[in-house]
């Protein structure tokens, strides 16, 4: 067992526990977009940053990937953490303003505006779908393509995947597309399909046109018009 201090509270956890798991177990809220139980921690969204270390050189690390260490001093909501978290939410909002999850995050963290040039992207490249496909569905149908600003999620050579079983796991896990899973009726904005693991588009016959690889998610049905 490992004893560490979290927000001044001495806590004891099992070895191998991450800081995020520790924080959640003891009831400290730490937001995250790229973490899901059952998938390998990835550390991509940087929302879950917490401050560790003492006076001299405290640093920020992603709570989802950092293991609990004996005697570690962790602050999950210091002013530095909150400041950076707000900036990351602002960046998210500037890129994906339509996502309900991101809007909720912004509202919860009192982010009222974004000061960057507005973009309308769909994907935040959290990598949940890729890991879902690899680790839970054992399909390896999708992965990351490109790097830097050209990074995207897709199938090899952007062709139709032969290993994709159209299971819908990628859509189920996607944190950014919850509002946009609108099938082809935009007015039914929240269809609930994502949450019961049977997105309406799966019942539809036109698999050919379905995104599956989430570029651009189910919204493609709407955009084609």
């Amino acid at each position: 067992m490992i004893t560490l201090s979290m927000n001044g509270l001495p806590v004891t956890v099992e070895e191998g526990t991450t800081l995020l798991e520790t924080a959640r177990f003891f009831g400290f809220p730490v937001p995250t977009l790229c973490h899901a139980d059952g998938l390998t921690p990835y550390g991509a969204c940087r929302l879950c940053v917490v401050e560790i270390g003492e006076m001299a050189r405290p640093k920020l690390v992603a709570a989802c990937t950092y293991p609990a260490e004996q005697g570690l001093k962790v602050r999950t909501a210091s002013s530095r953490v909150m400041r950076t978290r707000r900036m990351i939410i602002e960046l998210l909002l500037a890129s994906c303003p339509q996502s309900k999850v991101i809007q909720d995050l912004a509202s919860a963290h009192d982010v009222r505006r974004q000061r960057f040039r507005q973009e309308h992207e769909d994907c935040i490249l959290c990598g949940l779908c890729v890991r879902m496909c690899q680790e839970q569905m054992m399909a390896n149908a999708i992965g990351f393509l490109g790097r830097g600003e050209r990074r995207s999620v897709g199938t090899p050579f952007a062709g139709r995947s032969e290993t994709c079983r159209l299971c819908g796991g990628c859509m189920y896990i996607c944190p950014a597309c919850q509002l946009r899973c609108t099938y082809n009726e935009p007015e039914k904005a929240i269809c609930g399909g994502c949450t019961n693991l049977s997105p309406p588009c799966l019942e539809k016959q036109q698999f050919d046109d379905m995104m599956c690889y989430r570029t651009p998610c189910v919204a493609c049905e709407i955009r084609k018009d």
């Binding site: 550390g43 991509a44 929302l47 990351i88 960046l91 500037a94 490249l125 790097r147 600003e149």
Partner: peptide, 21 residues
């Protein structure tokens, strides 16, 4: 840097893009 960032971290990928912008 924005071209060479691997793009894994959101803060590095979007941050360098926005700084360049």
């Amino acid at each position: 840097l924005k071209d060479e960032s691997c793009g894994k971290c959101f803060s590095c990928r979007k941050g360098t893009q926005r700084m360049w912008e």
